[in-house]
């Protein structure tokens, strides 16, 4: 990681006219402004994470583990699906090799997130390590799809989304571990909030890639590949083993159709660190601009 660029994220602001010379106080103000922009976008994750975290904490506690264990694993593993598996792994006999293999397989989708964020997470300075460490399904989705206004520092925005999301998850897990037995309200179904969030982000992406029915297939090869490939693998491999096959199918299809897709306008510049924002701004006329006022809706 190169950290000799001092005002890393803020340096990016220079692209939109400001100079890169930024004093400590400006940086603090920038951080605060980024938090105000970031927080509303994490509200859905807050709902889902606190609820799922409590569920996880309760499961751990009722399985006989100490109350602090869910909080600790939430903090350092920080992958919901892996942590739920962790309960059964810790209850079975000691087998670190198989635990490691499971972790790599469950975490394999992070490889896709990493490749998608390579450009966006460039030049993030000291924050970069933390941003990568806390890449979860939800944090990735929010950070990838966020339409960050020009006056907001991107590195701080990503940082706050990552930090807040992780805090929600740890807080939920701790609450479930320590006080889970006190909760008597029936919250069944609240986890649907996570499904709803991915659906909304999926639709956002869809609208951004074009809304014309005439060019439906040409505009949406990626989205359609994701849905069709996953459904296919789900049917063949079942709910517990379809993630990795799905990833392979998606990767293969997208690589096979690279030429026609590049012709169809999937330009390479889009995701390089420098130009993606300005390009987003152009496309976003309809799809993404709404993203910005998401916080006003409730």
């Amino acid at each position: 990681m190169k950290s000799n660029r001092t005002s890393d994220g803020t340096e990016r602001a220079g692209e939109s006219g400001r100079t890169a010379v930024i004093s400590g106080q400006d940086d603090k103000r920038g951080a605060l402004r980024a938090m105000k922009t970031a927080f509303p976008k994490t509200i859905p994750v807050m709902t889902g994470y606190i609820f799922l975290g409590i569920t996880y904490g309760m499961l751990m506690a009722t399985s006989g583990f100490p109350g602090w264990l869910p909080a600790l694993t939430a903090l350092i593993i920080y992958t919901g699906s892996m942590e739920f598996l962790m309960v059964s792994i810790l209850l079975s006999s000691f087998n670190p090799l198989s635990a490691f293999a499971t972790a790599v397989m469950v975490g394999a989708r992070h490889l896709f997130y990493g490749i998608s964020m390579l450009g966006k997470y460039r030049n993030m300075g000291w924050k970069k390590f933390y941003l990568i460490y806390t890449t979860s399904d939800e944090t990735f989705s929010v950070n990838y799809s966020a339409d960050i206004p020009d006056y907001v520092d991107r590195s701080w925005f990503y940082f706050w989304v990552s930090l807040l999301d992780q805090m929600y998850w740890v807080a939920g897990s701790a609450a479930g571990g320590f006080f889970g037995s006190l909760i008597t309200i029936n919250l069944d179904g609240l986890d649907f909030v996570m499904t709803a969030m991915f659906v909304v982000i999926f639709l956002q992406q869809w609208m951004q890639d074009g809304t014309k029915l005439r060019s439906l297939f040409r505009d949406h090869i990626c989205e359609l590949t994701g849905i069709a490939g996953s459904v296919l693998c789900l049917v063949i491999f079942g709910p517990d083993h379809f993630m990795i096959p799905s990833m392979i199918v998606i990767l293969a299809v997208l690589l096979i159709f690279r030429k026609p897709m590049e012709k169809a306008g999937y330009t390479l510049e889009h995701d390089t660190s420098a130009s993606d924002h300005s390009e987003n701004a152009e496309i976003s006329g309809e799809g993404l601009s709404n993203n910005g006022n998401g916080g006003d809706d409730i």
Partner: peptide
Amino acid sequence: YLGRVLAPAVFGLLVI
């Protein structure tokens, strides 16, 4: 190229 096209597909995968 993958960085550009993977994410929309992954959102589909996450929904499923």
